[in-house]
Each structure stands twice: as C-alpha cells, then as structure tokens.
Simulated assay, not measured.
Amino acid sequence: MSDQMIGVVLWADARDRKAVIWCEDHGNLAYYTAPNQTEHEGECLDAGDLIAFEIREEHDCRLARNPRRVNAGFAPYLAHNLSGARRTRPDITRGGNVLPFEKRAG
C-alpha cells in the first residue's frame, strides 16, 4: 500500500531517470527510479521541481512512484541552500551532515 506525498526534487539524473526528493513531512528522503521505458515516456524530473507522488517504505527506504510535476522550477536553489546552511552555521553541524535537534525541557 502506498500513500500520497508532495516533495521537491533535490537531485535528478535525466539520463538514468533517477531522483532524490525532499518530502513534505520532512522525514527521510525518497528515492525515485523510473521503470524501464523509452526516454520519451513518463515524467522527466529536474532539481527544484515540486512534485506529487505515491510513496512507500521498503526495507527502511522511502520509494517514490508515479511522480507528477506540480510546479516546474519551484525551488531551483533548495539543494544548494541546504548544503550552504552547513557551511554558514558550523554551530549546528556537529557530527557530519546531520543537523541535531535541540533538547527538549522536561
């Protein structure tokens, strides 16, 4: 069973027809690989596109299926801005590329 999700494409490879998607729920990233089709079939995704898609979890991995472009070029600099946050805010990037959550009181 799969659920519906909205997300922004962070990275896409048109030749291999693969993409990495930042999901609206800010959970794990979703991965998309197009089924075997000719290059003129299906949706061609670009970084920054806002898409709607079906999502399912398999072996601790989120997989996107049947993407539909909602807005081409919605956030073209999102991936760059996210990686830039690490360089401009070294106080929040302890331990590699994971941003830690602040501890809650209580």
Rank of each mutant, 00 (worst) to 15 (best):
A75M: 10
N66K: 15
E39H: 14
A72F: 04
D49Y: 01
E24M: 11
V20F: 07
R69Y: 03
H40D: 15
A34D: 09
N97H: 11
G7I: 01
E39A: 09
N36E: 02
A30K: 12
N36P: 10
G42I: 01
K103P: 15
L78T: 03
L63P: 12
A64G: 06
G7Y: 09
A52Q: 15
V70P: 03
V70D: 05
N36C: 00
C23I: 07
P35W: 00
G73F: 02
S83Q: 12
T38F: 05
C61E: 13
E41I: 11
R69E: 04
E24G: 15
C44V: 08
L10H: 03
A79I: 00
G95D: 14
V98A: 13
L45D: 02
V20A: 09
P100D: 02
C61P: 09
F101M: 09
V8M: 00
H26M: 07
Q4E: 05
C61A: 09
A34T: 04
E43K: 07
L45I: 00
V9G: 08
V70M: 14
I6T: 05
N71F: 09
A79S: 12
E102Y: 15
R69S: 07
H80P: 02
G7C: 04
P35A: 00
D60K: 14
G42N: 06
A14V: 05
D13V: 01
A34H: 12
I92E: 12
Q37A: 03
I6Y: 11
R87E: 14
P100N: 11
P90F: 01
A12H: 03
T38W: 01
R62N: 06
N28F: 10
K18H: 05
L99W: 12
D25V: 00
Y32S: 03
R17E: 07
R86G: 11
K18R: 13
L45K: 01
S83M: 09
A30N: 13
Y31Q: 08
D25A: 02
D3K: 09
C23Y: 03
R17N: 06
D91T: 05
L78V: 02
P67F: 04
L63S: 07
C44M: 11
E24P: 13
M1S: 03
A19G: 03
H40E: 15
E102P: 14
I21R: 06
C23A: 08
A47M: 00
L29K: 11
A14S: 13
E57H: 08
R65F: 13
C61M: 08
V9L: 05
Y77Q: 12
A47W: 01
N36D: 03
L63K: 14
V8P: 11
K18C: 09
F53C: 06
V9H: 10
I51S: 00
M1N: 02
P67I: 10
G95C: 08
E43S: 06
T93C: 12
D60Y: 10
R69L: 06
G48N: 07
T88Q: 08
E39V: 06
C44I: 14
P100W: 10
A19S: 08
